[in-house]
Write a protein that binds this DNA or RNA. Structure first.
Lengths: 348, 348
DNA sequence: TGTTAGCACTTGAAGGTTATGAGTGCTAAA
DNA sequence: TTTAGCACTCATAACCTTCAAGTGCTAACA
């Protein structure tokens, strides 16, 4: 257990280091804390904090920087003293979500962008996903010139469309037959099952109406894939340049790769402690070696029966936790409101 | 006018420097050119080439590197001796375009990616655009839950669709009336005119059928915009890291910004000399200060009445011109074939 | 006249030295 | 428990030295 003074010192070190990026020495601390105590005393306290593993040196005679455990302690016990979302930030958040959106995708995508702009870090946003989305509608619209647009609608309100080409000898009747087939056999089923049946019994049935069913099956599969995959968006990828050591370009390319991998990112974002509003993973707490010098903050938002999604910030371990956690929490709330509002329109 | 030996020397300098990245000295040149001449002679020749402004030093006692004018001379007079597309590359190109594609966009997008992979530089690809695309089809498909999908087709075969929301009191008849209105008034007109009328007389006409026409008009406009804009794709953005001096992140961000600006890139890509298959712009020949240390190679491809598009490679001035020009030329040919093939299907 | 050997000279890169400043740990006294 | 004082450490920057690569020039040569 830390004494009050030790807590104060640790807090000051975290704040100063996250702000300036320089290791903090005992004299600087005396200035910062308007405490009537000499630098030697601070040095003794710092030695204790180092024994506890909460701070560390960059080299023998340097000032101290927080260790990963130090950040963790700060986040768990100390940060609440600093959390506060500025009025300015608050109105920026509100403003950013103020527009009118035609699709959930747009709201989520612009959330990722706004969050990255607000924080100057990299932001991620995952669409709300309710466990078991069902196919609720299917159309084929002939467009002339052997082109057909396939449209599918899910019960969560998602619309996906994709064009494909048919042989010129395919008639309107045949298309209608296919629509009937899909409506009878697949509409109402969960997307997972539809995808599965697309690989098993459906092809032979379609083959009764289409001599070359591959084009249609491929199109249908792709559109389904898009509807089924919990889409996610990344904002401010380039901000990585600001807070990464760009010694070799390969690391950065690997990071980019990782950032575009839906499942990997999704898995990493899953909160470890779900009692808190914003989950914080610091350094090696993130289940990926590439990110051992980064911190990942995740907030889950909940839109009732439309499922839950996640927004997240990826920044350096040396990030401004109090501000970023505050922002993410506030954004989470506003986004929830926005989405509830959005869905209300369709749920009536 | 250069002597044969001077040409040989310039060529060797360009080849050696583009390959190794190190300035080339007189002794190295003696080795390279299996010419029975001493380094002193080469030095004299180099002094002349420097007088001509074709090569330059990095500092007083360094070897020589090509100047921009030197690259230009190489490309104009010397490169043909080295051009040759490897069998391996050729089969990679063929392979990359071999798949089956549902949209032109996909072909163009994967062209950009393939080109960047083949060259390790950054690649751009612009869709074929025929001057005056017309709106050739329009549909509204009600999807239930107050959602409607607007579909528009152009005479160049492009399909764009976008969903929007309507008030629940809008009837099917009203939607049909709108479709009729668009068909009568706008189908058959060029996209430019349609966009224009969308700002002038159309809103009042639509207002007869819809109490809140904003959603529809916005959707229609956005889909039109997408169909009208000559879409373009960038591949291998991250390769910039390999051949840019990443001293400050801002430059790289600016570059990214520039790369995503359709019109800017389009303007820069327009060939200066259009008698050649592949147009080469070196350093300050590119009309943008950000790219003064880069070279931009552009090839125009022509798909008859479906218009012409462009593919391009952005790399360092110190690039392997012979190989890259060869690749781009070969790719251009294959892409043309692929597209002609693709369109044939719809044109019957 | 073109070519060559020879030589003095220049330069960047790499390695070594030194001074400086910020910071520490420890000791002994308050 | 706190503090002043002091010896000590280390990163950084500035400066010097050495080295290799390369140049330009001159004078001799074919």
């Amino acid at each position: 257990m830390l004494t009050d003074r030790q807590k104060l010192i640790l807090q000051a070190i975290v704040l100063a280091y996250t702000e300036t990026g320089h290791a903090v020495g005992s004299k600087k601390l005396v200035e910062m804390l308007k405490i009537t105590v000499s630098s030697a005393t601070i040095r003794n306290e710092m030695a204790t904090l180092e024994e506890f593993g909460l701070i560390q040196k960059e080299h023998t005679s340097s000032g101290r920087i927080p260790s990963l455990a130090g950040y963790r302690y700060y986040v768990d016990h100390l940060k609440h003293r600093d959390i506060l979302v500025g009025k300015n930030d608050m109105s920026l958040i509100r403003q950013s979500l103020d527009g009118s959106y035609a699709k959930v995708d747009e709201i989520i995508a612009s959330s990722a962008n706004m969050l990255s702009q607000l924080t100057s870090y990299t932001a991620l946003a995952i669409k709300p996903e309710s466990g078991d989305v069902k196919l609720s509608g299917f159309r084929l619209v002939p467009l002339g010139n052997h082109q057909v647009l396939a449209i599918l609608v899910t019960d969560s309100g998602e619309v996906e469309s994709q064009q494909f080409a048919i042989n010129k000898d395919v008639s309107g009747d045949q298309l209608e037959a296919i629509v009937r087939l899909v409506n009878e056999q697949l509409v109402g089923q969960s997307l997972r099952i539809v995808l599965q049946r697309l690989l098993t019994d459906i092809p032979t049935q379609i083959a009764q109406y289409l001599s070359t069913p591959d084009g249609f099956l491929q199109t249908f599969g792709q559109a389904l894939d898009r509807a089924a995959s919990d889409q996610f968006f990344v904002g401010g990828r380039l901000n990585l340049l600001d807070f990464s050591s760009i010694d070799n370009p390969t690391t950065l390319k690997d990071l980019y790769q990782l950032l575009s991998n839906k499942t990997d990112m999704h898995d990493m974002m899953i909160p470890s402690q779900d009692n808190t509003e914003v989950s914080v993973k610091i350094g090696d707490e993130i289940a990926n070696d590439l990110l051992k010098d980064y911190s990942l903050l995740t907030a889950t938002y909940d839109v009732g029966n439309h499922g839950r999604g996640m927004i997240a910030i990826l920044g350096p371990t040396r990030m401004s936790y109090s501000r970023t956690i505050g922002l993410l929490g506030a954004f989470r709330q506003e986004l929830t409101n926005k989405l509830i509002n959005y869905y209300q329109f369709y749920d009536e």
